[in-house]
Design a protein around this nucleic acid. Structure first.
Length: 820
RNA sequence: GCCGAAGUGGCGGAAUUGGUAGACGCGCUGGACUCAAAAUCCAGUGGGGCUCACACCUCGUGCCGGUUCGAGUCCGGCCUUCGGUACCA
């Protein structure tokens, strides 16, 4: 009979809801497991395969933990602010609030079909004042501590989205969202001082169980480098140039200095005769950034300023150039150029005929040998006064010590990480709780006046300024300090602010005394298992760590990290291409749900391949899972109500069982072991395969007594309930159970004695080549095998007339005879 | 360029610390059931050789080399694909 999935799925969904099976008792923190998937962006499109792939298997993991007796908390919510809703509004006139709420309602229904254990009491959305009020509150706490600040700064501007972007949101010089070219613009913007936490963010990576590649990405993004700051005086001037270098050992080889074109010093030091050229160059680089910054041809360009700097260690006079290969955003915006030992400087020096001075001698070469490229490895220091003869790697610290002694410079650590730009010139986000007063300057909104509510009636057409700036009712306020006319800050916050702490809010979404219930947060965080896309490696996953540490420093949390274990699901592609609405290649899961049901579809997604690898979508194998599910259903259906009065023990003595009983008893114990291991480690494909193997062995069930049947089938149903929840429940019921398996606490213990077999197959090799396999009792000794092999013609024909040099024996595995 | 991951049958993919390569599934082939088909069930299925057949032999995990009794797994050198990053001093 075909598995009537529609009735079964409906039945159990209803049961779970009516009996609140998945409501978590948050006050009970014994055996707690906080399982979380990255929350959902409520777009108008249907949930696609990617959502199912993310949520389904993770839910199976959570379900298995629950079956094992853990107190599992698995919430789901909506990341409801953001640009797409606003762009949609501009196009259609439908207000972002209305469309978002409608979308959430639609998505709730679809989510339900997945049959996940989401605790609906914990649902949250970020676009309501009850939530974003606390974004503002956190903002104010940062402001108080100098961690939220406003500055006039060059920012990434997307003309199409009419807003600024964080560095993390610029991909290949293009806007992450709309792929249009990002340009530079100078604007007053709000920043969060994430750089204050750079060192701790780096350090903390060693303490968390995250994919190594994600940690590496964060490490690179933070980009710590150690070196020195060196001060060069500008000749005939009071100005000084402070450079950062990781190679103080090459300091004697400096032949020129480079400033970034935008560097403020340029105006003050450029000589009259070079002003024009410098101005032209600055203009051209500005244009270049706007037009073609990502050009693959990186021909070095630059101009001389006419000024000279003095190298503090040898008083050499070196020219000061400007060039766009010096970046204003990194280090001090100034570079000491050592062409002999830096590839970029070498290239530049060659092009502009600047001197190349060798100060590190490569082992096995002579000083007068000409350099054909920069030598950047370790060698012996030369032309370096008192350091001559020193190995360059040791020279680094020695030169730094010397610089500090003479007051020429200092040891310095630099980070690539920049502060997080959070202002957005858009409507659909959290208003920034700051008032700008002509008399008092920046005035933070009083905490008791929060939330600063986002007004509903707004003209959100694009215009280069925030839509909120055009809303008189919102923008005009009385300054709380001087009672004069003032204006609210018209910008809203980056939506990554919302997602930086939502996992704390889930624990009590209605909490009123603070952003989250600190008592619960202490018990339930860090999140035990966090699952989401790898594309968030340097954005959400970095910001959330920063927030967590900040909230800890506020005294609201005790833990240092938000997510102790992280897993990335892979990407499901369609014919090699990422699925996206714009490409029109999104595979709709609906037809599979309709034809096969939720359980089959979820199980197929798990079975396809390694979870973190994703893969190209194909429905080719789904019939295999469908067959498995139907066979399984048939098997259990056969025993419907027949085992109701049977009672199985927790353990059976193998010697009391017949061969078939032994076989299935062992197999189910072995499967339970394997299945548990595989699920625990997110290896769902092999977990499902192990169940298929088990089913294939269960033909032998016919020759078993009822007790064994029940023993085996109840364990099978137990495992099924994790990967095919509705079917698992149904099968559990067929065995005579009246209650949901999730309310039954079966606590099956693996019989470790049943894990091994009576007999094992040993590979018999001659010189490492397989010549025969022999079945022997487990743990047989070498001598016994030898006696068998000696009678075995298949093996002996390769041994006869040759000398046995060696025999290698690995118990229960292999017996290898080495001959010559 | 640099950092990271991966290359295994016709296909998706399995293989504890080096120890019987190809689990599980798809597909395909043959058979049963059927008037027939679908569905279902049973059997077979890496390539090559040899044989009436059973058996047996041989080659096989991107390429070349090495370590080892034994390598998909370890080491050295390449090639390809996919992610990340990009003048970071």
């Amino acid at each position: 009979m075909r598995y009537p999935f529609k009735q079964v799925e409906e039945k159990w969904l209803q049961y779970w809801e009516e009996n609140q099976v998945f409501k978590t008792d948050l006050n009970n923190t014994q055996n707690k497991k906080y399982v979380l998937v990255m929350f959902l962006y409520p777009s108008g499109a249907n949930l696609h395969i990617g959502h199912w792939y993310n949520y389904g298997p993770t839910d199976s993991w959570a379900r298995f933990k629950k079956l094992l007796g853990y107190n599992v908390f698995e919430p789901m919510g909506y990341d409801a602010f953001g640009l797409p809703a606003e762009n949609y509004a501009i196009k259609t006139g439908i207000h972002p609030y209305d469309s978002t709420m409608q979308n959430i309602e639609d998505i709730r229904k679809q989510l339900k079909k997945m049959g996940c254990m989401y605790d609906c009491n914990a649902e949250l959305m970020t676009c309501v004042p009850e939530y974003y009020k606390w974004n503002q509150w956190i903002f104010l706490q940062m402001y108080k501590r100098g961690l939220a600040y406003r500055k006039f700064a060059p920012v990434n501007w997307c003309n199409s989205c009419q807003t600024v972007l964080a560095n993390e949101q610029v991909i290949d010089g293009e806007c992450e969202r709309c792929n249009s070219k990002v340009i530079q613009k100078n604007l007053y913007q709000w920043f969060f001082k994430i750089t204050d936490y750079a060192e701790e963010l780096l350090d903390g990576l060693n303490k968390i169980n995250w994919p190594e590649k994600t940690k590496i990405m964060q490490r690179n993004w933070i980009g710590k480098s150690e070196g020195a700051k060196v001060i060069f005086k500008v000749e005939h001037s009071d100005e000084e140039i402070r450079v950062f270098t990781t190679r103080p050992d090459t300091l004697y080889g400096v032949t020129y200095v480079v400033l970034a074109p935008e560097h403020p010093l340029v105006d003050r030091i450029t000589t009259e005769e070079h002003k024009k050229a410098v101005e032209n160059y600055r203009e051209s680089t500005k244009l270049l950034t706007e037009i073609e910054r990502t050009s693959t041809v990186k021909e070095k360009t630059g101009v001389f300023t006419g000024a000279y700097a003095i190298n503090p260690v040898n008083n050499e006079r070196v020219p000061i150039w400007i060039a766009d290969y010096a970046l204003i955003t990194y280090g001090t915006g100034c570079v000491m150029a050592v062409p002999a030992h830096d590839e970029r400087d070498f290239e530049f020096a060659k092009k502009f005929n600047l001197p190349i001075k060798k100060v590190i001698l490569q082992d096995g070469t002579k000083e007068e040998d000409e350099l054909t490229s920069a030598f950047t490895d370790v060698g012996t220091m030369i032309n370096s006064d008192i350091f001559n003869g020193t190995r360059s790697d040791e020279g680094i610290t020695k030169v730094i010590e010397y610089l500090e002694q003479k007051d020429f410079g200092k040891r310095k650590i630099n980070y690539r990480l920049r502060d997080w730009l959070i202002s957005r010139q858009r409507y659909w986000g959290t208003p920034i709780p700051i008032i700008h007063c002509p008399n008092c300057g920046e005035v933070p909104v009083d905490e008791k006046d929060l939330p600063v509510e986002l007004p509903y009636d707004v003209d959100f057409r694009l215009g280069g300024e925030s839509p909120l700036a055009r809303n008189e009712k919102f923008i005009k306020v009385i300054c709380p300090k001087c009672s004069g006319d003032a204006k609210r800050d018209p910008d809203t916050m980056d939506t990554f602010v919302d997602s930086s702490w939502y996992y704390l809010r889930y624990l009590n979404p209605n909490y009123k005394k603070g952003p989250f219930d600190t008592e619960l947060a202490d018990k339930w965080t860090p999140v035990d298992m966090y699952v989401g896309g790898a594309e968030h490696a340097t954005m959400h996953l970095l910001y959330a760590r920063f927030f967590h540490k900040f909230l800890r420093d506020l005294g609201l949390l005790n833990s240092d990290e938000p997510f102790s274990t992280l897993v990335h699901q892979g990407t499901i592609t369609n014919q090699g291409a990422k699925m996206s609405k714009s490409k029109g290649n999104v595979v709709n899961p609906d037809e599979f749900i309709e034809n096969y049901g939720t359980d089959v579809f979820r199980m197929y997604l798990m079975f396809m391949g390694p979870y973190d690898q994703g893969g190209d979508w194909s429905d080719k194998g789904i019939s295999g899972v469908d067959r498995f599910v139907n066979r399984t259903y048939d098997l259990f259906k056969q025993y419907e109500n027949k085992l109701r009065n049977v009672i199985a023990s927790d353990k059976y003595d193998l010697s009391s069982l017949n061969d078939d009983e032994k076989k299935v008893y062992r197999k189910v114990n072995q499967t339970l072991k394997k299945f548990s291991d595989e699920i625990e480690n997110f290896r769902f494909n092999t977990a499902v395969a192990s169940l298929m193997e088990l089913l294939n062995e269960l033909k032998a069930l016919e020759n078993c007594i009822d007790e064994i049947k029940l023993y085996v089938l109840s364990r099978f149903a137990f495992m099924l309930a994790s990967v095919a929840p509705h079917l698992g429940e149904e099968c559990w019921q067929f065995l005579g159970n009246d209650k949901s398996i999730y309310l039954s606490n079966p606590s099956f213990i693996i019989d470790s004695e049943a894990l091994s077999e009576d007999n094992v197959n040993i590979a018999i090799q001659v010189n490492g080549k397989l010549r025969a396999t022999i079945s022997v009792p487990i743990d047989s000794e070498q001598s016994y095998l030898k006696s068998l092999v000696e009678k075995d013609e298949r093996v002996m024909k390769f041994v006869n007339e040759k000398t046995i040099l060696k025999e290698i024996f690995v118990k229960n595995k292999i017996y290898n005879i080495v001959v010559k």
